[in-house]
Nucleic acid binder design. Structure first.
Length: 716
DNA sequence: ATAGGGTTAG
C-alpha cells in the first residue's frame, strides 16, 4: 500500500502531454501495415497455444520485425499476455522500449491491460507511474485498466489519485473512464462517492447504468437496484442488454420476487437474450432463488449449451429448495455430460447429503473429492464438517475440523462444529468451543449464537442459555427473531411455558412462526392445551397453510381426548387441501438406505420386521415400559392405540436394525418428522435390553441412545 | 491496433 502510494506521488520527469498533442500525434502517425506485417499479423491471430507462439516469436526476431514494427510487437505482447505468460510479455515490452526513443501509449496500454486483467495491481500502477514519468501520453484507454486493477484489489486511495489525474488531464467526462470509476468505487464499498459520480454525469450510457445497478445488487440492496433499472428504462429509454439482464436477474433473485422474475424472463426471451449462456444461467439462478425449481429446470433443459455454472446453479437450486434427491439424480447426469464437476459442485453435493442425512453417500462424495484431487478450500472443508455432523458422524466432523489449519478456520468452520456438538446434545462442549473460538480471535456471528442457543436447548442447559442470551444483549449483538425463537424453544422444552410465553410477548419485533411454533411444541410436550390454543391461533394467522402446526394442535387435543376439536381441525385441513406429511424413517444397511413408512405394507422386509416388533413389544413390557398412548392420534380403543404405536416408522426401522445390523455396529436411523414421546422411551429401553448404540436424527437433532438413556436427557 | 458493466457455492 505504502509502496504504491509513493509510486503515485512521484513527480513526472517530463511534462505529460495534453490531449490535444495526442490528437496531433495520432493523426500524424496513423498506422498502415505492409504486406509482411499483414502476413505475420495473420499468423499471430490464428496461433493457438504457447509453443506455436514461441515459433512465431523467433521468426519475427530473425526477420528483425520485433524492434521495427510497433504493430507486430504489440500483437505478440498481447498474445503472450493472453497465454498467461506475463513475464515474456514484459520482457518483450522492455526490449522494445529500449529500441524506441519513448514508449508508445499503445504499447504501454497493452501491457497495463495484461497486468490489470490478472489483477496485478502493483505492476499496473508501477507501469502507470512509468508512463507519467516518461511523459508517455496517458489516455482514455489507460484509465479504465488502472481503475479495474484498483477495483480488484480494493485500492481506494490509489484509485482516487488516478481519478484526480484523469480529471486534470481532461478525461473526467469520458464514458469509459467514468464507468470504470463507478465500478471501482462500488467494488471498494464507497457507495456515496459512487452515486455522487453517477448523479453528476451529464450523459450516461447503458454501461454506466448497469455498473450502478450492479453496485446496488452486489451490496444486497435489490430494491434500489430495481428502482434504478426502472428509471433507466423510463427516463432514458435505454434497453437492457444481456449484461444488464444478468445484473437485474440477480437482484430479483435476492428479493425472491416471483412476478418480477416472470417479467425479466419474458424480456430475455423476447429479445432472444436468453440464448446466451450467461443470461440463461442468471435466469435459471433467479428462478431457484424465487423457489421455483420447475421453471429453473425448464430453462436448464432448454439451454443450447451448459457450462459448470449452469449445472452448479441447478444443483444448488434443488438442494436449497429441499429437493436434494433431485440434485443427486442431476449429478449423475452431469457426470455423463462433458462438464467436469468443480469444488463448488462438490460443496453443493456434500450439502445435499447433509440435508438428507445420507452418511454413506456423503462419505462417497468425500472419497470422490480426494480421489479426483480436488482442492479442498476452507468452504469445502466446512461443508464436509457440517455434512459429517448432520449425518451423525460427529467424530469424523471433529477430525476434519482439526484438519483445517488454524489460520484458515473462519466463523463458518467454528459454526459447523459448534452446531454439530449442539445437534448431538453436547451442550457443554458447544459452549467450550464457543469460548475457544473467541480466544482464537474469530468473531462469532448471528449463526454462531443461533447454534449456541439451540445447543443449550437440546441439552437442557437452561441457565447457560439464559446467560448467553443476556450476554448477547450486553455485547450489543443484533438480536434477531430467530434467537428469541431458540430461547422460547429452550424454555418451552424445559416446561417453563409461562416464561417462554412472556418472552414472546416481550419480543422487539413481531414474533415469527418459529417462536410460536416452539411454544406450540412445548405445549404439546407438556400437555398445556390453553396456551397451545393461543400459540396455534397466532400461527394459523402467520402460516395458514403449514400442515405441521395443525398436526401439533390436533395432537394436543387428542391427548386430552377432545375428539370433537380434533375432528374440526381435520376438517379445516381437508377444506384447505392440506395433507399431513407422511412419517418416514430411513436406516443405513450396508451400502443401502432402506425406508419405512408408518404401518408399511410394501417394504420387502415387512413380515420379519413386524414379527420382530411384536416380540420387542413384549420384551419392553417385561422391562417395565408403559406405552404412551397419547402419541397415537386416532380416536380408537386403547388397545388398538398401543398396537398402532408399534408400527411407527422409526420403530419398524429399529426392529429391522436389531435384526440385520451386526451387534457391534451403531444403528443409524433418520426420520423426516420428530420422534414421538413413545418411540423415544421405547428406544431408550431397547438400547438397554439389546445393549446397542442407536443414533436417531429427527428434524435436525440427534438422539444417541445407549444403556437405557438418551443424550438429550429428555429435553427434545 | 487497445477500453467500461455480469452468472454458481458459503
Amino acid at each position: 500500500m505504502h509502496r504504491l502510494g509513493s509510486l503515485l506521488s512521484h513527480k513526472p520527469l517530463l511534462k505529460p502531454r495534453t490531449p490535444l498533442y495526442s490528437l496531433i500525434l495520432s493523426s500524424t502517425f496513423s498506422y498502415s501495415p505492409n504486406s509482411t506485417e499483414i502476413f505475420y499479423d495473420h499468423l499471430l491471430k490464428s496461433c493457438k497455444g504457447s509453443s506455436s507462439l514461441k515459433q512465431i516469436h523467433s521468426a519475427l526476431t530473425t526477420a528483425g520485425l520485433i524492434t521495427t514494427s510497433p504493430h507486430l510487437s504489440a500483437q505478440i505482447i498481447i498474445k503472450y499476455a493472453k497465454c498467461g505468460d506475463l513475464n515474456m510479455a514484459r520482457l518483450l515490452f522492455d526490449n522494445i522500449n529500449v529500441c524506441y526513443d519513448e514508449p508508445t501509449s499503445f504499447l504501454c496500454n497493452t501491457m497495463i491491460r495484461a497486468y490489470a486483467n490478472v489483477g496485478q495491481c502493483f505492476e499496473t500502477i508501477k507501469l502507470y507511474s512509468f508512463m507519467r514519468k516518461t511523459g508517455t501520453f496517458v489516455n482514455n484507454y489507460t484509465y479504465p485498466f488502472v481503475f479495474k486493477a484498483c477495483a480488484l484489489n480494493l485500492l481506494v486511495r490509489e484509485g482516487k489519485v488516478v481519478h484526480g489525474d484523469a480529471l486534470k488531464n481532461g478525461f473526467g467526462s469520458d464514458l469509459y473512464v467514468e464507468a470504470g470509476l463507478i465500478d471501482m468505487y462500488a467494488k471498494c464499498g464507497l457507495f456515496v462517492d459512487c452515486r455522487k459520480l453517477f448523479d453528476e454525469m451529464s450523459t450516461k450510457d447503458l454501461v454506466c447504468w448497469t455498473a450502478m445497478i450492479t453496485a446496488y445488487e452486489q451490496a444486497e440492496k435489490p430494491v434500489e437496484a430495481l428502482i434504478l433499472f426502472k428509471m433507466m428504462q423510463q427516463e432514458e429509454g435505454l434497453l437492457a442488454d444481456s449484461i444488464a439482464v444478468v445484473s437485474v436477474a440477480s437482484a430479483v433473485g435476492q428479493l425472491g420476487d416471483v412476478r418480477n422474475a416472470q417479467t425479466v424472463h419474458g424480456y430475455a426471451f423476447r429479445k432472444s437474450l436468453i440464448e446466451e449462456l450467461c443470461v440463461g444461467n442468471s435466469i435459471l439462478a433467479m428462478h431457484t432463488k424465487c423457489g421455483n425449481t420447475e421453471k429453473a429446470r425448464l430453462v436448464f433443459d432448454m439451454m443450447m449449451e451448459r457450462d459448470v455454472i449452469s449445472w452448479n446453479s441447478m444443483l444448488s437450486g434443488y438442494t436449497q429448495n429441499g429437493q436434494a434427491t433431485e440434485a443427486l439424480l442431476l449429478f449423475d447426469e452431469m457426470r455423463d455430460s462433458d462438464c467436469q464437476p468443480t469444488p463448488v459442485t462438490a460443496l453443493i453435493m456434500v450439502s445435499a447429503c447433509a440435508y438428507l442425512g445420507f452418511l454413506h453417500l456423503g462419505r462417497k462424495f468425500h472419497d470422490y473429492i480426494v480421489d479426483s484431487r480436488m482442492e479442498i478450500d476452507t468452504n469445502l472443508a466446512n461443508a464436509l464438517v457440517d455434512m459429517y455432523a448432520k449425518c451423525g458422524d460427529l467424530e469424523k466432523a471433529v477430525d476434519l475440523f482439526y484438519g483445517i489449519p488454524p489460520t484458515k478456520r473462519n466463523a463458518s468452520s467454528w459454526n459447523a462444529l459448534i452446531s454439530g456438538y449442539g445437534m448431538h446434545g453436547y451442550g457443554k462442549e458447544a459452549l467450550e468451543l464457543f469460548s475457544r473460538m473467541q480466544e482464537e480471535g474469530v468473531e462469532p456471528n448471528h449463526i454462531t449464537f443461533t447454534s449456541i442457543l439451540s445447543a443449550c436447548s437440546h441439552a437442557g442447559l437452561i441457565d447457560e442459555g439464559r446467560k448467553c442470551f443476556a450476554d448477547m444483549k450486553r455485547l450489543s449483538v443484533t438480536l434477531e427473531v430467530k434467537h428469541h425463537a431458540c430461547v422460547v424453544d429452550m424454555l418451552g422444552r424445559a416446561g417453563l411455558l409461562q416464561e417462554a410465553f412472556d418472552l414472546i410477548k416481550e419480543m422487539p419485533s413481531p414474533p415469527s412462526d418459529g417462536a410460536w411454533g416452539a411454544l406450540l411444541l412445548a405445549c404439546k410436550i407438556h400437555g398445556n392445551m390453553e396456551l397451545g390454543k393461543t400459540a396455534a391461533s397466532n400461527l394459523l394467522q402467520l402460516e395458514p397453510n403449514h400442515t405441521g402446526y395443525y398436526v401439533l394442535m390436533s395432537n394436543i387435543y387428542a391427548a386430552s381426548n377432545k375428539w370433537k376439536e380434533v375432528g374440526k381441525l381435520r376438517q379445516d385441513m381437508k377444506n384447505k387441501g392440506l395433507k399431513k406429511p407422511a412419517a418416514f424413517s430411513m436406516i443405513e444397511y450396508g451400502k443401502d438406505i432402506l425406508g419405512f413408512h408408518t404401518a408399511d405394507q410394501e417394504n420387502p422386509y415387512r413380515h420379519e420386521v413386524y414379527r420382530k416388533m411384536e416380540s420387542l413389544a413384549i420384551e419392553m413390557k417385561l422391562a417395565g415400559y408403559l406405552p404412551d398412548i397419547s402419541c397415537a392420534l386416532h380416536d380408537v380403543e386403547e388397545e388398538d392405540k398401543e398396537h398402532m404405536l408399534n408400527y411407527h416408522s422409526e420403530k419398524l426401522a429399529l426392529a429391522f436394525g436389531i435384526l440385520k445390523i451386526d451387534h457391534g455396529m451403531v444403528i443409524r436411523i433418520t426420520k423426516n418428522l420428530r420422534v414421538c414421546n413413545d418411540c423415544h422411551s421405547a428406544f431408550k429401553i431397547i438400547s438397554h435390553i439389546y445393549q446397542r448404540k442407536i443414533i436417531v436424527r429427527d428434524a435436525n437433532r440427534f438422539h444417541h441412545f445407549q444403556g437405557g438413556t438418551c443424550s438429550c436427557k429428555d429435553y427434545w
